[in-house]
Structures are given as C-alpha cells and as structure tokens.
Amino acid sequence: MLEYVLKRVATMFVTLFAVVLLTFILMHSVPGGPFTAERKLPEQVERALIQKYKLDDPLYKQFFDYLKGLARLDLGPSFKYEGRTVNEFIREGFPLSARLGLLSVGFTLLTALPLGILSAVKNGKWQDILVMFIATLGITIPSFVIATALMYVFSFRLGWFPVFGVKKLNGYVLPVIALSGYSLSFVARLMRSSLLEVMGQDYIRTARSKGLSESAVIIKHALRNALIPVVTILGPTIAGLITGSFVIEKIFALPGMGVHFVTSIANRDYTAIMGITIFYATILVAMVFLVDIFYVMIDPRIKLGRES
C-alpha cells in the first residue's frame, strides 16, 4: 500500500509540475509582454513595472523564482491590482466556491446514486424513462442555460428564491442545482449503466441460482460491484464541482473564485490567471489521488504495491 501511495504521490507531482510549466509558458508567451496588451503605458511606468515583476530576468530564472514561490505556497502578486496577491484572491473567493462545490457534491451523490439505481432496477419502465430523460437534459444542456432557466422561472417568475447572492440560505438552492446538473446526470447515467451491466454478469446469475431474493441480489452482490466505476470518476467530478462554478457564480453574482478568475481573464491579469489555474489543477489532482486511494481500498483485486 505504502509503495502504491508513494508512487501515486510521485506521479501527482510530475503532473502538477507539467501543469505549472505549461501555464507558465503559455502566460509568458503573450506577444509583446503583459503590459502592452491593451492601452499603451508611459515608457517609464512600463519600465518600472517590468523591473518590479522582474520581467527582464531570463525566462528560466523567472520560472525558478515562481517555483520557489510555489514551494512557499505563494502564488505571487497580481499584475493588475497594486499591492494585492493572488493568494488573497483565493482566500477571498475560494471559501464560497468550496461551500457551493461541497453542497453540490452532496446533492449530486444523494440524488444521482438513488436515481441511477432506481432507473436500473426499473429498466425500461416509466421511472427509468423519466430519470433518463432528465439525465439526458442535464448532460446536454449547458450549465449556464440551466442556471438562467432556473433563475428565470424560480426567481423572476415564481419568486421562490432570491435572484442574487447567498445572504439567505435558500440563495444556495438554485446555484447548487445548476452546478450539479451535469455531474448529477452523468453519475446517474453511469450508475444505471454500471448496475445494468453488473446485473447481466455471470456472478449475479450465480447469486440468483442460490435462491437469493432479487433485492438481496442487488444489495449484497450487485451494488458494490456497480459502484466501482462510479468511484473512479468521483475524483474529477468532485474537483469539477469545487472548481467549475465560474459560470454559475457569474450568473448568480456570487463573489467566489470563479468570479475572480473571470475578472482576471477580462483584466488580462496574467499572474492571477496562472495562479488560479494552478490552484484549480492542484485541487483536481489531489481529488483524483484521494479517490484512487479509496478505490484501492474497496477493490480487493488491486493488490497492494501493484498498480491495477
């Protein structure tokens, strides 16, 4: 087990390094440098800025400085806002995004798994058709459309929920639903197809041939097997929910990470874009890592110290 964990930690760092390198290169290849992008700055101001951000250092040195910063968990200063750091942006925005994301994770799991199971058990019946219809909607309709539609109907037309903000607790309802829409549908579909596939396996027939009741077959034999593929996609799903809320935040005007990210993009605040991207990537990689470890623990077929 330890060997496996160490190996996974190593790959995790390789991946993160690649991400940092890639984002760094991308953000430093903006033609003409970051300060010439929009309006022209006075010569000496530009020079001062370049000095301040050490932009005239050779690129590799800048990169190492950046890495050193990262090692101290310091994402550096913002390019656009004097005296502010990227860390501050994250500290301001992330708690709300994380709250939104975790609520969505909970909502997704609590609804998607039962719905997927129901759908598989009632395969071909109206319950299945209904659930799969909704799941297809959730997969195909982009989240920003879901969000605006929900907002129009439930906030403007019916007035059930506040239009903006999360001052009241029910302000979370629509953003969470809109944010979960895709992952919920995806997990429900995966759960269904996985359970259906498992139900067609030989060992399920074996269990039935022993005289187990259908519910015992499902609970004791099918569910655990069917959950394995669901667990494997849980890492990216959770990370996606925690980090992927920028459109939702924009629509519901929630001051989370996503808003900072979109603003940074609009402002061409390169250090902020780079920092937030790396932060997102770290969360994602960490989630995938945790889920992988969990996966190894629930599947006895994966031997300790040996990869899948």
Partner: peptide
C-alpha cells in the same frame, strides 16, 4: 497528464 486537468482550463 494533459487529461488530468479540465480541458476547459
């Protein structure tokens, strides 16, 4: 490695 990160990013 590429596909570890959400491609939208």
């Amino acid at each position: 490695i590429i596909s570890t990160i959400p491609l939208t990013l």
